[in-house]
Each structure stands twice: as structure tokens, then as C-alpha cells.
Design a binder for these strands. Structure first.
Length: 818
DNA sequence: GGGGGAAGGATTC
DNA sequence: TCACGGAATCCTTCCCCC
């Protein structure tokens, strides 16, 4: 909490300093700090919040104690060595110092409050807080004189300033105003970096360079010349003095050169450019901005605060000027140094940046390398000189604070709601992530986060909730029999699939389906499937029909068997991780040819275009992996037989059957016994021409259920598959009989639907392979289903689970069966 | 020992 | 009015697995 940030009053005043008002902000000078801190402390004392703050402070104190013990153990030799290293690193950093950029940080003054005052002039001279009745987002400068500031609870603000007016937040208005300001920013740096609605970094190096040759007319602006008249309300007249009243140093009030009739001419240097920018912002929005101009982002940020409000400050692009500026700069002014770091450094006698540099050797021995490097850079006045606007988002979250909540039902309901909100946000940006984190804050303000990294990316409410509810449940169980008393819940999704990874994944899957058929750069039209990891598609995809409280059915069954042991670390997850790694490697070092297959089991790239060899590889992989992974799972599975065949054409109907129990499965139940011993029923209702290998004794039945019609070939023969080596990717859908068997008809290609005049599987496979490569592009996008049969939960009974696949090619389908 | 995940914390607006 | 946010990022520590 910003308002609680440390402000040392006296040495050793303990919590008082920890809880005291942070008057490190503009507009707080000359206030009665002592009186304000007393009010804050009295208002906070005894509350749960206060107690938690006390605990946190004690934790920091312990960290400091530990650090001091470490410090006491440092030997002279270690210290000397560290000094040498610091010296060397300092020299390295100096060599890399770049003073060539002109970086500007612009910050709107008390932005939300200023917008409210602009739109309601009667608020102009009154203390104003913007926010809710719980917490203020910001305050105007009148309120700041009372000690009221951003992130302060409203009841405390009211104690400090009983006449405080509270105005609710109106983000639409702030966004609209922010857009107006950003239009101006873009004219000075098209690649400016917005940090929030009210601040941004700009690199105006190029602008200043071009500006040198600009005629005066291009640097001349008129009072209210850019003001958007249409934006004025009828009762409002343009009031040139509105902001000028507030701040004497308005850019409008002190133009570099005053032209006739309110014309203002600005100069050509960086400072003049920034003054001009601020002038234009004020003319356009009637709001003032402050700015800092420096050779890097860190310094520019500190500078923008220097003459706030409505001022600007520049550090010349000279090493000595930078060092002079930094010398007496309190470390707390540096972005990134908060109250904890300040307290820790203060314990080492470091309060300014000069001291930070003097104690460099000590810091290198007490802090991590990352922290130490950061400190050293600060102490030298170094910062980023490149404004990177292309940083990819790392996570997305939503959280909510509420009155005490102890009911489990309510907690799960809220959790689902949050997952829904988050899913909407994710989908708006087209994001899918692998890690789901639940954040919980109990009524004692203790925060816990619990995370789960999944084998596949998630983005929908159901998917996120499937993970989030498990995490929540674990916490509820952990507290049991005590109720989990919450005051905040949040859900976050992170671990997004990066652009490169998406491309790689897409490429792999495409090549998996249709090696050599897609031109480079061409993308699939079916946006859903290409981003789904293969194993998710192969049975780990949640059935949309499953109750919201159920996770992926297959996964759930497995975890039941493991008696609570997480299956997250199972073969599937490891394989997924391995796949991502391998694909990343493939991306980094593409092979001689772009045409290859990726094995769906080991995810190794398989060179060459020989489907036969590839099939053989997949079979071997399946044998080795599944024999190990599923041995127990399938050992009791007696299923064998044939697959189900539909004679209907392509369509997208979904079977409404889940968890079908089959008592005493017999040969002919429509179960495909696969090479991995993992039996599947194949409801091929969208596969054209998927034909079974019928055999003597087979009877053909038409199976009807409530939603679908299938003609099913039931086989009653001894077609038990005994060897895995016959499972053929992209080819065989049929079950190989132990022997050709008398009267066994020829194989029918599932692609062209033409009977093949051979009983030789190798020849048949070759034919199907050829067919596949011809038809695969057209086939992509067709939805189909298959049934996965898990090992019997009850001996003699089978539990069938539907798994649905979207937008996949038949070749993939066949592979799933394999 | 390195890498990755989980959890917690610090920091910013 | 009896009360202290929400979102995002980065860092550290611990632990497990390879």
C-alpha cells in the first residue's frame, strides 16, 4: 500500500515509521506530518490489517537481522575481493554508458482528480478524493495537504479531512482523456510506451534532431488553438485560467517566446519540445502534465517527479551532470526501491545513491547478483536507454475483495465466476496459458497463492475452473475442519504460448498431419486445433458436456487411481514439456528440410517423408511408452473386436453418451483393441467411409441412440491384436486378425472407401498413406469423435468415456486410434 | 548442478 | 458506516527431477 510506505520520522520508532504516511509524493510538502501520522496510527490500531502489517514488519526485521549476521561474518579478504569485482563491473558499466538518447517521462498531475475537477469546476477549490467508499485511488492537491493520498482507505482519509469530497471512479472518462494525450505523445514519438492511463515514456531523440531545421511556424501554437470545442459542455466556457490558477509554472504561462495574439513560439531544443508537448496537452485537455528529460528511463522517471506538479526537469546528457544529480538522490525516489528495500539498505547506512555506490562491495556480498547489479546501475545513474514497446504480456488475472466469506459453496461459485471473467479477458486477447494460479487472502490479510501448471494450455471458463477449483479445494481441505475465511479471491493464468511457440506448435501439427502439403507461411484456417497439444487432443481434452465441477474425465479417473497422487507429473505432462522443449529446439535450428513428421509420442522430429518408416517409429514408441505407462491400467482389459462404422456422410453431430457402462464386454462390443493395449471404441460418425474389416461371423447392426444413428459392424471373430507393431499411423484403422482367416474380406481404405485387393497390410498401408496425403487438406476441419475406454473401475464392467476432437484431420484421427 | 515449478514477496501504478 | 484495491511484473527461495 502506497500510502503506508515508510517515511522515517525518528530512528527506532518501530511500527510508527512502518505505518506512517508516505509523503514522498508531490503536493505533500509542508504538511503536519506528526499529526497526520498520529491519526493514521490511531485509526489503524487493533485492526486485522494493522496486525498483519505488524507481522510483515517483523519479518522484514528478521531479514535485516539475518543480513547483519552475514555482514559480521564477512572477512577482510572477501571484502577486498568484492571491491575488486565492483571496480571491474563499474568500469564495464561505464564503458557501456549511453548518453545519446533523449528520454522523456511524462506524468499527468493527479490525473483522475484533475479530470473530475475539470468536468466539475465547483470541485476545483475543495479537497477531493477519487475512488470508492472503501479506498481512494487518488486525491487532488488540496486533499494532499491534509495527508490524504492515493491508496488510502476512505475512512482514514475522512478522519484526516472530514470535508473530503469523494467522487466515484469513471474510467471511461479517464480513458478518453488519456487517448487525447496519447495522440500528442505520438507526434513526438510514434513508438512511445504508455505505462498507465496517465504516464508514458517517449524517446524524442529523432524528434529533436528533425526539429532543429523546423521553421518557427512549425513550433508556434495558439492558446486554445487545439482545444476540442466539441468536447465542451454547454454550460462550460473555455476557461484559459483553469489550470493556470492551479499552477504558476504552467507552460502556457511561461512560453519561451510570446507571439502576437496569444501565439506561443517554442524553441528547438529538447526542453522546448517537452514544454511544447505539455502546452499542447493542457490546451487540448485542460489538464497539466509534468515531465522529466534524461538520457535514460530511470533518470527521466525520477526527473518527472522533481518539479511536479506542472513542471519539468532535465538532466543534461553529460556523465558529470548525471553523477551530480544522482549523488544526493534518496534511494527511495528511485523506481523499484520500495519501503522494504529502503529499510534494508538503511540498516546498512545507505540512504542516497552516492552511499549506494560507496557500499558496493558490501552489497555484492549481501544481496543476490541481480539485486546488486541493479543497485550498482542506479548508483551510476544508469538505466534503460531503449524503450521497448513490444514486451509480451506474461500473465492475466482477476481478483475480487469482499466481505468475509466462509461458505464453501459461495467460494466455489465465486471461483467459477472469476474463471469466467478471466476466460473472457483471455479470449479477447486470444491468449491461452498453461499455469493457473489461485490467490487467496484470508480475513487476517494473509495472502496465499497456489499454482498448477497443466499439460496443455487453457483459456475457457471450464478449463480454468477445472484447475482453480482443485487448488481452492486443497486449501479448504487444508483448513478443515475450520472454515476458510476469505476476504479476497483471485485467479491468474500465466505461461502463455509465445508467438514463436505457437508457430512451432502449429508447424509441427500441420507437418504431423500433412507433411509437405502446406506452403511455408501458410496457416491453417482452423484456429482452434493447431494450438492444442497433441496429448490433450488424445484424450485429455475436457468433454464440454461434463459437469462444471468435473475435470477432464480421463485425468480424473487416473488421479483417482493414484489415490490423490497428482498425475500432473505423469508421462503426459513430462511428454508435453519435452515436446515444447524439442519444438523450441527445432525452431532454433531447423533441419535441412521443412518437411518432416513429428512423432506424437516422443515428439521427436522424424526426418524424411517415408510414412512407412514413420509408422514403424510411432509403433515402437507406443509399445515402449504405453507398455510402461498403462500396463496396470489395461492389464485387465479383455476388449477386442472391431470399430464402429457410420455410413453417414460428414456431419457435426455430437453423441450425448458419456460414461456408458458395459457389463461383461465381449468380442463384438465395438471396441478397438489397440496396440498399446488401451482399448477404444471408435464412434466414427463424421468419418467418411470408415469401414471396418469385417470377417466371418461379423454381424452388422444399426445402433441407435437418442442423438445419433450409426451402422455398426460387430465382429465376433478372433481378431485380437497381439502385436503393437501393426498399429499404423495414417493407415490402418482396422484390427489385424491373428491370421488372415478363412473368408476374411479384403481391406477397405478408410480414405477413398475403395476395397483393396490385398490382405497384405504393408501394401494396404502404403495405399492409405497415399490417399491421406491427397485428401488431407480438404479433410482438415471436420469434427469427429471417438470413445476412449479406460480400465474397468469395477471388474467386469467398463467405463466408456467420450472424447471429442475438433478440427482435426482424419490422419490424426487414425493416429489417435493407433 | 541446472532448470523448472510453486509459493511468497516487493514493487509499481 | 467500524473499514485498507486490483493488476501486473520481477525476484527469491525452496523443492524436485533430470
Amino acid at each position: 500500500l502506497d500510502f503506508l510506505n515508510i517515511q522515517k520520522l525518528n530512528e527506532g520508532d518501530g511500527l510508527f515509521s512502518w505505518m506512517a504516511l508516505n509523503d514522498n509524493k508531490a503536493g505533500m510538502e509542508g504538511i503536519n506530518r506528526e499529526k497526520i501520522n498520529k491519526i493514521i496510527l490511531e485509526a489503524s490500531k487493533g485492526s486485522k490489517f494493522y496486525e498483519n502489517e505488524l507481522k510483515k514488519e517483523q519479518q522484514v526485521n528478521q531479514r535485516i537481522e539475518k543480513m547483519m549476521l552475514q555482514k559480521a561474518q564477512i572477512t577482510e579478504q572477501q571484502f577486498r575481493k568484492a571491491e575488486g569485482q565492483v571496480e571491474k563491473l563499474t568500469a564495464d558499466l561505464e564503458r557501456g554508458r549511453d548518453l545519446g538518447r533523449v528520454v522523456v517521462h511524462v506524468d499527468m498531475d493527479a490525473f483522475y482528480a484533475a479530470v473530475e475537477m475539470r468536468d466539475c469546476p465547483e470541485l476545483k477549490d475543495k479537497p477531493l478524493g477519487v475512488g470508492s467508499w472503501r479506498l481512494l485511488s487518488t486525491s487532488n492537491y488540496h486533499a494532499r495537504k491534509f495527508g490524504v493520498r492515493a491508496a488510502m482507505p476512505t475512512f482514514i482519509a475522512k478522519k484526516l479531512c472530514p470535508n473530503l469530497i469523494i467522487v466515484p471512479l469513471n474510467f471511461d472518462k479517464y480513458r478518453a482523456t488519456s487517448a487525447e494525450v496519447r495522440e500528442i505523445f505520438a507526434e513526438y514519438d510514434p513508438n512511445f510506451l504508455p505505462m498507465s492511463l496517465d504516464e508514458a515514456y517517449l524517446d524524442i531523440t529523432d524528434h529533436v534532431m528533425h526539429r532543429q531545421s523546423w521553421p518557427e511556424s512549425m513550433r508556434t501554437y495558439y492558446l486554445h488553438s487545439g482545444y476540442d470545442q466539441a468536447r465542451q459542455r454547454p454550460e462550460e466556457q473555455p476557461d484559459a485560467d483553469l489550470s493556470l490558477d492551479l499552477f504558476e509554472d504552467s507552460p502556457s504561462a511561461s512560453p519561451s517566446v510570446s507571439g502576437p495574439a496569444g501565439a506561443v513560439v517554442f524553441g528547438t531544443c529538447a526542453e522546448e519540445a517537452v514544454r511544447e508537448m505539455r502546452f499542447r496537452i493542457e490546451q487540448k485537455t485542460m489538464l497539466t502534465a509534468s515531465a522529466g528529460i534524461a538520457p535514460n528511463m530511470m533518470l527521466a522517471k525520477v526527473c518527472s517527479d522533481k518539479n511536479k506538479p506542472n513542471g519539468q526537469y532535465r538532466i543534461p546528457a553529460e556523465r558529470q551532470a548525471v553523477m551530480d544529480f544522482v549523488k544526493n538522490l534518496p534511494i527511495r525516489k528511485v523506481p523499484g526501491i520500495g519501503k522494504v528495500t529502503e529499510k534494508m539498505l538503511s540498516a546498512l547506512g545507505i540512504k542516497t545513491c552516492a552511499e549506494l555506490h560507496q557500499k558496493g562491495a558490501l552489497l555484492s556480498l549481501l544481496f543476490s547478483e541481480t539485486s546488486f547489479h541493479h543497485f550498482l546501475q542506479i548508483s551510476l545513474g544508469l538505466g534503460s536507454t531503449h524503450i521497448n514497446r513490444d514486451g509480451e504480456r506474461k500473465s492475466m488475472s482477476t481478483e475480487r475483495t469482499f466481505a468475509e466469506m466462509s461458505s464453501v459453496e459461495e467460494q466455489f461459485r465465486l471461483c467459477r465466476e472469476l474463471c469466467g471473467d478471466l476466460a473472457n479477458d483471455l479470449q479477447k486477447e486470444g491468449l491461452k496459458g498453461r499455469t493457473v494460479t489461485v490467490k487467496l487472502k484470508n480475513v487476517n490479510f494473509e495472502v496465499k497463492t497456489r499454482a498448477l501448471t497443466l499439460s496443455s494450455v487453457v483459456s475457457t471458463e471450464e478449463e480454468i475452473f477445472a484447475a482453480a477449483k482443485d487448488l481452492l479445494k486443497a486449501e479448504i481441505d487444508h483448513m478443515s475442519p475450520q472454515p476458510l475465511k476469505l476476504r479476497l479471491m483471485g485467479v491468474r493464468v500465466s505461461g502463455f504460448v509465445s508467438g514463436d511457440e505457437k508457430k512451432s506448435l502449429q508447424k509441427s501439427i500441420i507437418s504431423f498431419f500433412q507433411s509437405g502439403r502446406l506452403e511455408s507461411g501458410e496457416t491453417s484456417q482452423h484456429s482452434g486445433a493447431e494450438e492444442l497439444p497433441l496429448l490433450q487432443l488424445a484424450g485429455f481434452q475436457k468433454d464440454p458436456g461434463v459437469s462444471s465441477l468435473d475435470v477432464c474425465p480421463v485425468k480424473q479417473e487416473v488421479s483417482k487411481q493414484e489415490a490423490g497422487q497428482s498425475e500432473q507429473q505423469s508421462f503426459f505432462q513430462k511428454a508435453h514439456v519435452r515436446r515444447l522443449r524439442l519444438q523450441a529446439e527445432q525452431q532454433e535450428s531447423p533441419g535441412p528440410s521443412d518437411q518432416y513428421f513429428t512423432c506424437p509420442v516422443c515428439f521427436q522430429k522424424q526426418e524424411g517423408m517415408d510414412l512407412g518408416k514413420f509408422n514403424q517409429h510411432v509403433d515402437e514408441c507406443l509399445t515402449s511408452v504405453y507398455t510402461a505407462s498403462w500396463e496396470q491400467d489395461v492389464s485387465s482389459c479383455p476388449a477386442q473386436g472391431d470399430y464402429i462404422r457410420t455410413e453417414e456422410g460428414l456431419h457435426h453431430r455430437q453423441l450425448q453418451v458419456t460414461n456408458v457402462d458395459v457389463t461383461e464386454p465381449k468380442i463384438g462390443n465395438g471396441i478397438l483393441h489397440t496396440s498399446m493395449g488401451h482399448s477404444s471404441i471408435f464412434a466414427a460418425h463424421t468419418m467418411p467411409g470408415l469401414m471396418s474389416q469385417t470377417s466371418e461371423g461379423c454381424e452388422e447392426k444399426t445402433s441407435r441412440n437418442s442423438s445419433d444413428l450409426h451402422k455398426v459392424h460387430y465382429c465376433d471373430g478372433g481378431h485380437q491384436r497381439t502385436s503393437s507393431s501393426d498399429s499404423k499411423f495414417g493407415g490402418v484403422y482396422s484390427v489385424e486378425p491373428e491370421g488372415p482367416g478363412p473368408g476374411c474380406p479384403a481391406l477397405i481404405c478408410p480414405i477413398c472407401n475403395v476395397q483393396q485387393d490385398t490382405s497384405d497390410l504393408a501394401i494396404f498401408n502404403r495405399h492409405v498413406d497415399i490417399c491421406l496425403n491427397q485428401g488431407v487438406l480438404q479433410e482438415i476441419g471436420q469434427e469427429f469423435m471417438f470413445l476412449s475406454v479406460k480400465s474397468p473401475a469395477v471388474p467386469g464392467r467398463f467405463s466408456f468415456t467420450f472424447v471429442y476432437l475438433l478440427n482435426l484431420a482424419p490422419s490424426f484421427h487414425s493416429n489417435i486410434i493407433a
